[in-house]
């Protein structure tokens, strides 16, 4: 966790307008209301999740600055949080982020071999994104699903008891879904924020 934040080149430029829609802003106001008056900074973690989902799939400097302005806090307060938590991405990612668990319980149930197989199938190394921008492969620490090891999470979905055949199906499925537009994005927001 420590290593990525030292001298990390934060991405500054974004070529899309960084502003939530009115509908999302209404949701932002509701999130801020969960915390006592004057403690709006508490909404930072949920809002960073929203911003990452809504804008680029990762957090650029101008996205983080926008969140700082919404919460009336200093940009540095956002940067220091964004660089601390591993679910906030500071680099561009593919449309689907595959997070394979690499921790002990998954490792002894074949997780390492599954990670190798994913690298082979996607023809990338862990940490990289496929040239078509469809997949980023990340190795993450314990996902809390050790009873169904090996596991991985793609976007919000858990995939359990992984085998090579299952990986084949999952990747095909994700490829098919990705050719459509992201239809469930708004429903996702509805449920999780």
């Amino acid at each position: 966790m420590l290593d990525k934040k030292i001298n990390h080149p934060l991405h500054a430029k974004t070529d899309i307008p960084v502003r939530f829609s009115e509908e999302t802003l209404e949701r932002v106001r509701k999130i801020i209301e969960r915390y006592p008056a004057g403690k709006q900074k508490s909404a930072l973690l949920p809002l960073l999740h929203m911003a990452q989902e809504e804008f680029l799939g990762y957090l650029s400097v101008d996205v983080m600055d926008y969140i700082a302005s919404l919460l009336e806090i200093q940009p540095i307060e956002v940067y220091e949080v964004a660089t601390f938590y591993s679910q906030y991405y500071l680099d561009p990612v593919g449309k689907n982020v595959i997070e394979i668990c690499r921790t002990g319980p998954c490792a002894i149930c074949g997780g390492e071999a599954i990670q190798s197989y994913l690298e082979q199938k996607l023809a990338i190394k862990t940490g990289e994104t496929t040239p078509d921008g469809l997949f980023t492969l990340k190795a993450v620490e314990c996902l809390g699903a050790c009873g169904s090891a090996p596991v991985m999470q793609v976007n919000t979905e858990f995939y359990e008891f992984l085998t090579e055949e299952k990986i084949d199906h999952i990747l095909d499925d994700l490829r098919r879904k990705s050719s459509e537009e992201k239809p469930e994005a708004s429903k996702w927001k509805e449920k999780f924020f």
Binding site: M1, R34, K39, K41, S42, A43, L44, L45, P46, L48, H49, L71, I73, E77, E80, V81, F84, Y85, S86, Q87, Y88, V140, E141, C142, F192
Partner: peptide
């Protein structure tokens, strides 16, 4: 009662780190 989402940090299971995180800070 409100649900608050963390963002991937084992340390936030420690109670004072969790409080820091809930205040919108590093854990």
């Amino acid at each position: 009662i409100h649900v608050h989402s963390g963002a991937g940090a084992y340390i936030c299971g420690e109670e004072t780190a969790q409080i820091e995180s809930l205040e919108g800070k590093r854990g």
